[in-house]
Protein backbone atom coordinates (compact mmCIF):
# COMPACT_ATOMS: atom_id res chain seq x y z
CA UNK A 1 0.00 0.00 0.00
CA UNK A 2 1.01 3.60 0.37
CA UNK A 3 3.68 5.08 2.61
CA UNK A 4 2.14 6.14 5.85
CA UNK A 5 3.29 9.64 6.70
CA UNK A 6 0.30 11.16 8.41
CA UNK A 7 2.13 13.90 10.28
CA UNK A 8 3.86 15.08 7.14
CA UNK A 9 0.58 15.01 5.29
CA UNK A 10 -1.15 17.06 7.95
CA UNK A 11 1.76 19.44 8.01
CA UNK A 12 1.71 19.98 4.28
CA UNK A 13 -2.04 20.59 4.41
CA UNK A 14 -1.45 23.20 7.07
CA UNK A 15 1.23 24.78 4.90
CA UNK A 16 -1.33 24.82 2.13
CA UNK A 17 -3.67 26.81 4.30
CA UNK A 18 -1.00 29.31 5.17
CA UNK A 19 0.10 29.61 1.56
CA UNK A 20 -3.45 30.30 0.47
CA UNK A 21 -4.05 32.91 3.12
CA UNK A 22 -0.92 34.75 2.12
CA UNK A 23 -1.73 34.69 -1.57
CA UNK A 24 -5.47 35.11 -1.15
CA UNK A 25 -5.40 38.62 -2.54
CA UNK A 26 -3.47 37.58 -5.63
CA UNK A 27 -6.45 35.46 -6.60
CA UNK A 28 -4.24 33.13 -8.62
CA UNK A 29 -0.70 31.97 -8.58
CA UNK A 30 1.74 29.43 -7.40
CA UNK A 31 4.46 31.17 -5.58
CA UNK A 32 7.89 30.24 -4.46
CA UNK A 33 10.13 32.18 -2.20
CA UNK A 34 12.85 33.87 -4.11
CA UNK A 35 15.91 31.80 -3.40
CA UNK A 36 19.42 33.05 -3.58
CA UNK A 37 20.97 32.83 -6.97
CA UNK A 38 20.08 30.83 -10.06
CA UNK A 39 23.38 30.85 -11.92
CA UNK A 40 25.32 33.96 -12.74
CA UNK A 41 23.78 34.54 -16.16
CA UNK A 42 20.22 34.76 -14.80
CA UNK A 43 20.80 37.76 -12.56
CA UNK A 44 18.37 39.85 -14.61
CA UNK A 45 15.46 37.74 -13.35
CA UNK A 46 16.36 37.97 -9.68
CA UNK A 47 13.48 39.35 -7.64
CA UNK A 48 11.26 39.66 -10.71
CA UNK A 49 7.84 38.08 -11.04
CA UNK A 50 7.52 35.79 -14.05
CA UNK A 51 4.01 34.90 -15.23
CA UNK A 52 3.52 31.48 -16.75
CA UNK A 53 0.24 31.61 -18.64
CA UNK A 54 -1.92 28.51 -19.07
CA UNK A 55 -4.25 29.20 -22.01
CA UNK A 56 -6.99 27.01 -20.50
CA UNK A 57 -9.05 26.83 -17.29
CA UNK A 58 -7.67 24.98 -14.23
CA UNK A 59 -7.51 21.20 -14.38
CA UNK A 60 -6.15 19.20 -17.27
CA UNK A 61 -2.68 18.62 -18.67
CA UNK A 62 -1.40 22.11 -19.45
CA UNK A 63 -2.45 23.39 -16.05
CA UNK A 64 -0.82 20.42 -14.28
CA UNK A 65 2.49 20.78 -16.12
CA UNK A 66 2.63 24.53 -15.48
CA UNK A 67 1.98 24.07 -11.78
CA UNK A 68 4.53 21.29 -11.49
CA UNK A 69 7.20 23.37 -13.22
CA UNK A 70 6.53 26.84 -11.79
CA UNK A 71 8.14 26.48 -8.33
CA UNK A 72 11.27 24.84 -9.72
CA UNK A 73 11.67 27.34 -12.53
CA UNK A 74 11.28 30.06 -9.93
CA UNK A 75 14.14 28.64 -7.88
CA UNK A 76 16.36 28.41 -10.94
CA UNK A 77 15.65 32.01 -11.94
CA UNK A 78 15.73 33.39 -8.42
CA UNK A 79 12.32 34.89 -9.05
CA UNK A 80 8.71 34.19 -8.35
CA UNK A 81 6.90 32.23 -11.08
CA UNK A 82 3.14 32.71 -10.98
CA UNK A 83 0.74 30.46 -12.91
CA UNK A 84 -2.18 32.29 -14.48
CA UNK A 85 -5.11 30.66 -16.28
CA UNK A 86 -6.17 32.72 -19.26
CA UNK A 87 -8.88 30.76 -20.99
CA UNK A 88 -10.34 31.87 -24.29
CA UNK A 89 -10.71 31.16 -28.01
CA UNK A 90 -9.44 27.62 -27.60
CA UNK A 91 -6.16 28.85 -26.16
CA UNK A 92 -5.51 31.38 -28.93
CA UNK A 93 -6.47 34.42 -26.86
CA UNK A 94 -3.60 33.89 -24.46
CA UNK A 95 -1.16 33.19 -27.32
CA UNK A 96 -2.05 36.37 -29.15
CA UNK A 97 -1.74 38.33 -25.91
CA UNK A 98 1.69 36.81 -25.39
CA UNK A 99 2.73 38.11 -28.81
CA UNK A 100 2.10 41.63 -27.58
CA UNK A 101 3.96 41.16 -24.28
CA UNK A 102 7.20 43.01 -23.50
CA UNK A 103 9.96 40.67 -24.65
CA UNK A 104 11.85 40.52 -21.35
CA UNK A 105 10.95 36.97 -20.41
CA UNK A 106 8.65 37.90 -17.53
CA UNK A 107 5.69 36.62 -19.49
CA UNK A 108 5.77 33.05 -20.75
CA UNK A 109 3.15 30.52 -21.74
CA UNK A 110 2.77 26.79 -22.01
CA UNK A 111 1.44 26.21 -25.51
CA UNK A 112 -0.73 23.64 -27.22
CA UNK A 113 2.02 22.81 -29.71
CA UNK A 114 0.04 20.72 -32.18
CA UNK A 115 -3.00 22.98 -32.21
CA UNK A 116 -1.07 26.22 -32.61
CA UNK A 117 1.48 24.82 -35.06
CA UNK A 118 -1.27 23.33 -37.21
CA UNK A 119 -3.28 26.52 -37.13
CA UNK A 120 -0.28 28.73 -37.90
CA UNK A 121 0.76 26.55 -40.85
CA UNK A 122 -2.78 26.56 -42.20
CA UNK A 123 -3.03 30.31 -41.78
CA UNK A 124 -6.12 29.81 -39.62
CA UNK A 125 -8.24 32.75 -38.59
CA UNK A 126 -7.36 34.05 -35.16
CA UNK A 127 -3.68 33.16 -35.22
CA UNK A 128 -2.05 36.52 -35.71
CA UNK A 129 1.56 35.38 -35.79
CA UNK A 130 3.88 33.01 -37.60
CA UNK A 131 5.29 29.99 -35.83
CA UNK A 132 8.88 31.23 -36.09
CA UNK A 133 7.94 34.49 -34.32
CA UNK A 134 7.76 32.61 -31.02
CA UNK A 135 10.74 32.35 -28.72
CA UNK A 136 11.02 28.61 -28.10
CA UNK A 137 12.29 27.91 -24.59
CA UNK A 138 11.80 24.18 -24.43
CA UNK A 139 9.30 21.37 -24.74
CA UNK A 140 8.37 19.88 -21.38
CA UNK A 141 6.16 17.04 -22.57
CA UNK A 142 5.51 15.24 -25.77
CA UNK A 143 1.97 14.60 -26.78
CA UNK A 144 1.91 11.25 -28.39
CA UNK A 145 -1.42 11.08 -30.14
CA UNK A 146 -3.34 7.84 -30.37
CA UNK A 147 -6.29 6.86 -32.54
CA UNK A 148 -8.91 4.92 -30.57
CA UNK A 149 -12.29 3.32 -31.21
CA UNK A 150 -15.00 3.04 -28.59
CA UNK A 151 -15.71 -0.36 -27.08
CA UNK A 152 -19.29 -0.12 -28.35
CA UNK A 153 -18.20 0.48 -31.95
CA UNK A 154 -17.65 -2.52 -34.24
CA UNK A 155 -13.97 -1.58 -34.76
CA UNK A 156 -11.17 -3.44 -33.01
CA UNK A 157 -8.15 -2.95 -35.28
CA UNK A 158 -6.93 -0.49 -37.86
CA UNK A 159 -7.82 -2.96 -40.60
CA UNK A 160 -11.47 -2.85 -39.50
CA UNK A 161 -11.40 0.92 -39.89
CA UNK A 162 -9.83 0.80 -43.34
CA UNK A 163 -12.78 -1.31 -44.48
CA UNK A 164 -15.26 0.95 -42.66
CA UNK A 165 -18.43 2.26 -44.14
CA UNK A 166 -18.48 5.75 -42.63
CA UNK A 167 -16.25 5.83 -39.53
CA UNK A 168 -17.28 8.76 -37.31
CA UNK A 169 -14.73 10.75 -35.29
CA UNK A 170 -15.69 12.98 -32.36
CA UNK A 171 -13.99 16.36 -32.34
CA UNK A 172 -14.14 19.43 -30.12
CA UNK A 173 -14.13 21.75 -33.11
CA UNK A 174 -12.73 22.87 -36.44
CA UNK A 175 -9.00 23.49 -36.10
CA UNK A 176 -8.61 21.61 -32.78
CA UNK A 177 -5.83 19.02 -32.62
CA UNK A 178 -8.35 16.14 -32.66
CA UNK A 179 -9.94 17.66 -35.77
CA UNK A 180 -6.64 18.08 -37.63
CA UNK A 181 -5.42 14.60 -36.69
CA UNK A 182 -8.67 12.93 -37.71
CA UNK A 183 -8.85 14.69 -41.08
CA UNK A 184 -5.23 13.95 -41.90
CA UNK A 185 -5.63 10.30 -40.90
CA UNK A 186 -8.61 10.01 -43.23
CA UNK A 187 -6.49 11.48 -46.02
CA UNK A 188 -3.31 9.51 -45.31
CA UNK A 189 -4.99 6.13 -44.77
CA UNK A 190 -7.71 6.82 -47.33
CA UNK A 191 -10.75 5.37 -45.60
CA UNK A 192 -14.40 6.32 -45.45
CA UNK A 193 -14.51 8.59 -42.41
CA UNK A 194 -16.09 11.81 -41.25
CA UNK A 195 -15.60 14.13 -38.30
CA UNK A 196 -18.47 15.21 -36.03
CA UNK A 197 -17.74 18.56 -34.39
CA UNK A 198 -19.50 20.50 -31.66
CA UNK A 199 -18.46 18.67 -28.49
CA UNK A 200 -17.75 21.14 -25.74
CA UNK A 201 -14.47 19.65 -24.62
CA UNK A 202 -12.51 16.43 -24.56
CA UNK A 203 -14.73 15.28 -21.67
CA UNK A 204 -17.83 15.41 -23.78
CA UNK A 205 -16.22 13.88 -26.86
CA UNK A 206 -14.82 11.05 -24.76
CA UNK A 207 -18.26 10.38 -23.33
CA UNK A 208 -19.68 10.23 -26.87
CA UNK A 209 -17.05 7.63 -27.80
CA UNK A 210 -17.68 5.54 -24.68
CA UNK A 211 -21.45 5.75 -25.23
CA UNK A 212 -21.09 4.66 -28.84
CA UNK A 213 -22.61 7.84 -30.30
CA UNK A 214 -19.51 8.07 -32.50
CA UNK A 215 -17.00 5.38 -33.46
CA UNK A 216 -13.78 6.89 -32.18
CA UNK A 217 -11.47 9.84 -31.74
CA UNK A 218 -7.83 10.84 -31.68
CA UNK A 219 -6.31 12.16 -28.48
CA UNK A 220 -3.26 12.35 -26.26
CA UNK A 221 -2.08 8.95 -25.18
CA UNK A 222 -1.58 10.05 -21.57
CA UNK A 223 -5.21 11.21 -21.38
CA UNK A 224 -6.58 8.16 -23.21
CA UNK A 225 -4.64 5.50 -21.36
CA UNK A 226 -7.13 5.33 -18.46
CA UNK A 227 -10.04 4.59 -20.77
CA UNK A 228 -7.93 2.09 -22.74
CA UNK A 229 -6.93 0.25 -19.58
CA UNK A 230 -10.53 0.25 -18.35
CA UNK A 231 -11.57 -1.36 -21.65
CA UNK A 232 -13.81 1.55 -22.68
CA UNK A 233 -11.68 2.33 -25.75
CA UNK A 234 -9.57 0.20 -28.10
CA UNK A 235 -6.26 1.65 -29.32
CA UNK A 236 -5.88 1.36 -33.11
CA UNK A 237 -2.86 3.44 -34.11
CA UNK A 238 -0.15 5.53 -32.48
CA UNK A 239 0.61 8.73 -34.42
CA UNK A 240 4.39 8.52 -34.14
CA UNK A 241 7.40 6.99 -35.88
CA UNK A 242 7.61 4.17 -33.36
CA UNK A 243 5.24 2.25 -31.12
CA UNK A 244 4.41 3.51 -27.62
CA UNK A 245 6.04 1.73 -24.67
CA UNK A 246 2.70 1.26 -22.94
CA UNK A 247 1.02 -0.13 -26.07
CA UNK A 248 3.58 -2.51 -27.65
CA UNK A 249 0.94 -4.28 -29.77
CA UNK A 250 -0.51 -1.18 -31.39
CA UNK A 251 1.00 -0.20 -34.76
CA UNK A 252 2.64 3.20 -35.28
CA UNK A 253 1.86 5.47 -38.23
CA UNK A 254 5.55 5.51 -39.18
CA UNK A 255 5.71 1.76 -39.74
CA UNK A 256 2.73 1.54 -42.10
CA UNK A 257 3.28 0.83 -45.76
CA UNK A 258 2.24 4.07 -47.47
CA UNK A 259 2.50 5.64 -50.88
CA UNK A 260 5.02 8.45 -51.45
CA UNK A 261 2.59 11.34 -51.06
CA UNK A 262 0.92 9.75 -48.03
CA UNK A 263 4.29 9.04 -46.43
CA UNK A 264 5.29 12.71 -46.75
CA UNK A 265 2.00 13.76 -45.16
CA UNK A 266 2.46 11.25 -42.34
CA UNK A 267 6.00 12.50 -41.65
CA UNK A 268 4.85 16.09 -41.45
CA UNK A 269 2.00 15.10 -39.15
CA UNK A 270 4.43 13.28 -36.86
CA UNK A 271 6.79 16.29 -36.95
CA UNK A 272 3.94 18.51 -35.94
CA UNK A 273 2.97 16.17 -33.11
CA UNK A 274 6.54 16.44 -31.82
CA UNK A 275 5.81 20.00 -30.68
CA UNK A 276 3.95 18.54 -27.74
CA UNK A 277 3.63 21.00 -24.90
CA UNK A 278 6.36 23.64 -25.24
CA UNK A 279 6.97 26.67 -23.05
CA UNK A 280 7.34 29.74 -25.23
CA UNK A 281 8.00 33.45 -24.90
CA UNK A 282 7.07 36.51 -26.97
CA UNK A 283 8.96 37.37 -30.18
CA UNK A 284 12.28 39.16 -29.93
CA UNK A 285 13.44 37.84 -26.57
CA UNK A 286 17.04 39.12 -26.11
CA UNK A 287 19.69 36.40 -26.54
CA UNK A 288 20.94 36.52 -22.93
CA UNK A 289 17.47 36.21 -21.47
CA UNK A 290 16.48 33.44 -23.87
CA UNK A 291 19.57 31.37 -23.10
CA UNK A 292 19.07 31.91 -19.37
CA UNK A 293 15.43 30.75 -19.61
CA UNK A 294 16.38 27.74 -21.74
CA UNK A 295 19.04 26.69 -19.25
CA UNK A 296 16.82 27.35 -16.23
CA UNK A 297 13.95 25.33 -17.70
CA UNK A 298 16.32 22.49 -18.58
CA UNK A 299 17.70 22.49 -15.03
CA UNK A 300 14.15 22.47 -13.66
CA UNK A 301 12.88 19.54 -15.68
CA UNK A 302 15.95 17.45 -14.86
CA UNK A 303 15.60 18.15 -11.14
CA UNK A 304 14.81 14.82 -9.42
CA UNK A 305 12.27 16.52 -7.18
CA UNK A 306 10.33 17.84 -10.17
CA UNK A 307 10.54 14.48 -11.90
CA UNK A 308 9.17 12.76 -8.81
CA UNK A 309 6.27 15.22 -8.61
CA UNK A 310 5.55 14.80 -12.34
CA UNK A 311 5.64 11.03 -12.00
CA UNK A 312 3.22 11.17 -9.10
CA UNK A 313 0.73 13.14 -11.20
CA UNK A 314 1.30 10.83 -14.17
CA UNK A 315 2.59 13.74 -16.21
CA UNK A 316 5.82 12.42 -17.72
CA UNK A 317 8.48 14.96 -18.71
CA UNK A 318 9.90 14.63 -22.20
CA UNK A 319 12.44 17.35 -22.89
CA UNK A 320 13.20 18.91 -26.25
CA UNK A 321 15.49 21.93 -26.22
CA UNK A 322 14.59 25.32 -27.63
CA UNK A 323 17.17 24.90 -30.38
CA UNK A 324 15.62 21.57 -31.39
CA UNK A 325 12.19 23.18 -31.43
CA UNK A 326 13.55 25.92 -33.71
CA UNK A 327 14.78 23.19 -36.05
CA UNK A 328 11.36 21.59 -36.01
CA UNK A 329 9.77 24.94 -36.90
CA UNK A 330 12.14 25.23 -39.84
CA UNK A 331 11.38 21.71 -41.03
CA UNK A 332 7.63 22.28 -40.85
CA UNK A 333 8.02 25.58 -42.68
CA UNK A 334 9.57 23.61 -45.54
CA UNK A 335 6.82 20.96 -45.35
CA UNK A 336 5.28 20.06 -48.64
CA UNK A 337 2.59 22.21 -50.14
CA UNK A 338 0.36 19.12 -50.01
CA UNK A 339 0.62 19.06 -46.22
CA UNK A 340 -0.21 22.72 -45.88
CA UNK A 341 -3.08 22.22 -48.30
CA UNK A 342 -4.43 19.35 -46.20
CA UNK A 343 -4.09 21.43 -43.05
CA UNK A 344 -5.94 24.31 -44.64
CA UNK A 345 -8.71 21.97 -45.71
CA UNK A 346 -8.87 20.62 -42.14
CA UNK A 347 -9.28 24.14 -40.83
CA UNK A 348 -12.16 24.93 -43.08
CA UNK A 349 -14.56 22.04 -43.04
CA UNK A 350 -13.97 18.33 -43.58
Amino acid sequence: MFDRKPTRAAFSALLGAIALMSTACDAVGTSTEASAGGGGDCSMFEGETVTLVVPYSPGGGYDSYARIIAPHLGKELGSEVVVENEDGAGGLLAMNNLMAATPDGTELAIMNGVGVAGGALAGAEGIRFALDDLSMIGRVAEQQAVFVAGAKSPYRTLDDVLKADGFEFASTGVGAADFVNANLLIEILDFDGRVVTGFEGSDESELAVVRGDVDGQTGDLDSRIEAIEAGDEHPLLVIDTKRADVLPDVPALGELDLGQRERALAESLIDMSAFGRPIVGPPGLPEDRLSCLRQALHNSVTNPKLLAAAKKEERPISWLSGAELDELVGRLGDASAAFQQSLRAAHERG
Binding site: A9, A13, G29, T30, P58, R67, N85
Partner: peptide, 19 residues
Protein backbone atom coordinates in the same frame (compact mmCIF):
# COMPACT_ATOMS: atom_id res chain seq x y z
CA UNK B 1 -13.42 36.09 -7.61
CA UNK B 2 -11.45 33.52 -5.69
CA UNK B 3 -13.02 30.51 -7.35
CA UNK B 4 -13.27 27.01 -5.95
CA UNK B 5 -11.60 25.34 -8.93
CA UNK B 6 -8.56 27.65 -9.02
CA UNK B 7 -8.05 27.08 -5.31
CA UNK B 8 -8.28 23.34 -5.80
CA UNK B 9 -5.58 23.56 -8.46
CA UNK B 10 -3.38 25.56 -6.08
CA UNK B 11 -3.83 22.98 -3.34
CA UNK B 12 -3.07 19.89 -5.46
CA UNK B 13 0.67 19.80 -4.61
CA UNK B 14 -0.13 19.49 -0.91
CA UNK B 15 -1.73 16.09 -1.29
CA UNK B 16 1.40 14.39 -2.65
CA UNK B 17 2.15 12.65 0.65
CA UNK B 18 -1.41 11.99 1.64
CA UNK B 19 -3.39 8.81 1.46
Amino acid sequence: GLGGSVTLALMLPFIFDME
